[in-house]
Design a protein around this nucleic acid. Structure first.
Length: 356
DNA sequence: TAGGCCATCTGGTCCT
DNA sequence: AGGACCAGATGGCCTA
């Protein structure tokens, strides 16, 4: 691997950074590269180099702040290469190496925790976007894309107060998604793939372009629906196989609703949306703190259809939200909508709007 | 087997 | 100094 990278000059600086060679003094890098025959990974390699160096240092000194060191000599023998400016690197004594190792270990642990938290949040996000499945998770990037599209679609529904047609709804959800994910989403929404494909290809040269709400701000290339999942009737297969739920069905009472109770599905469903624009959640009533912890935000925007007290709140974009005000890349702060218990003052107005 | 996805390690940067 | 965040690198796993 390193050999391959070394042969690519464009990659070399990063490789040097990654390998920690900047820890070595001038001119040492190439020596290490050439002479280091062991097959340890980068961290171990650098540590080994540091250890061997400090062993020689320990012979005559015990203070890590001592002045002249061997590195100066090596600089002198280097010849044509200019001396390094700036503060000299402090020598790596055994104590400093140990401290550095400990810092690195702690930093790694923190980074792991951070990434686990991030993944946990992503899992929570997967549960509230359409097509949630425990058995076949959406990838991270697809989850984010779908969530963005979902927010956009919901905001458009709220803005217009009208029920979008199925094709437009799916088009919105699938914008920018990979073809497999598009297929899955479309399958979840029980869309006839041939109709979808035909309509898409007729629209704006294959790009998303029309519908009951505008897609003009989305220049994404449309994804084709050609997999078996998307063949007519394949949605049922998808539901049976993967336990997907259909957000559109729950939204608008499609025929696939009975399959909501797929045995493979155990978690809360993606939040369906009532026709009046409010969320309604088919929450599975778990009272366990674990579930509450994981899904509590889902309940915040959930509610029984028609229940004013449980409908969506903190909808900052409201009825005044215009197309120009809601951009695909900077929609409302999602966590605000989920995590805040306070009900936004705009809620009553919104609800009244949709009940008019 | 190639490519996608993911977890992890790592060093750099910014902030407190 | 230390923590948070980020991006690059790497290797493992899985699937078409």
């Amino acid at each position: 691997m390193l050999t391959r990278l070394f042969s690519d000059p464009s990659l070399l600086p990063d490789v040097q950074k990654y390998s920690g060679w900047e820890e070595d003094s001038d001119g040492e890098d190439s020596k290490v590269k050439d002479e280091d025959q062991d097959t340890h990974d980068d961290m171990e390699g650098s540590e080994l180099r540091g250890d061997s160096r400090t062993q020689s240092e320990h012979a005559g000194e015990d203070d890590e702040d001592d002045g002249v060191d061997e590195e100066e000599d090596e600089d002198d023998t280097e010849g044509d290469r200019p001396k390094k400016r700036g503060p000299k690197k402090r020598k790596m004594t055994q104590a400093r190496i140990e401290r550095s190792k400990m810092r690195r270990v702690k930093a790694n642990a923190r980074e792991r925790t951070r990434m686990h938290d991030l993944n946990s949040a992503l899992d929570n996000l997967r549960k509230v976007v359409p097509c949630y499945s425990k058995t076949q998770k959406l990838s991270k990037i697809e989850t984010l894309r779908l969530a963005k599209n979902y927010i956009w679609a919901l905001s458009e529904i709220l803005r217009s107060g009208k029920r979008p047609d199925l094709v437009s709804y799916v088009q919105t959800l699938c914008k920018g998604l990979s073809q497999p994910t598009t297929n899955l989403v479309a399958g979840c929404l029980q869309l006839n793939s041939r109709n979808f494909l035909t309509e898409q290809q007729c629209q704006d040269g294959g790009r998303y372009g029309s519908g009951s709400f505008s897609m003009h701000s989305y220049p994404y290339q449309c994804a084709r629906l050609s997999s078996p999942h998307c063949q007519p009737g394949s949605n049922s297969h998808a539901l049976r196989t993967h336990g997907y739920c259909s957000a559109y069905d729950s939204l608008y009472g499609g025929s696939g609703s009975p399959e909501y109770n797929s045995p493979e599905y155990e978690g809360p469903l993606s939040p369906p949306l009532c026709i009046n624009g409010n969320f309604s959640l088919k929450h599975q009533g778990s009272a366990s703190p674990e579930n509450d912890k994981g899904y509590h935000y889902s309940m915040h925007y959930s509610g029984l259809p028609g229940s004013r007290s449980n409908a969506a709140h903190n909808l900052v974009f409201g009825s005044s939200g215009s197309r120009s005000g809601i951009h695909s890349e900077n929609v409302l702060p999602y966590h605000d909508m989920h995590l805040h218990h306070e009900r936004a003052p705009a809620y009553d107005e919104l609800n009244a709007f949709f009940h008019n």
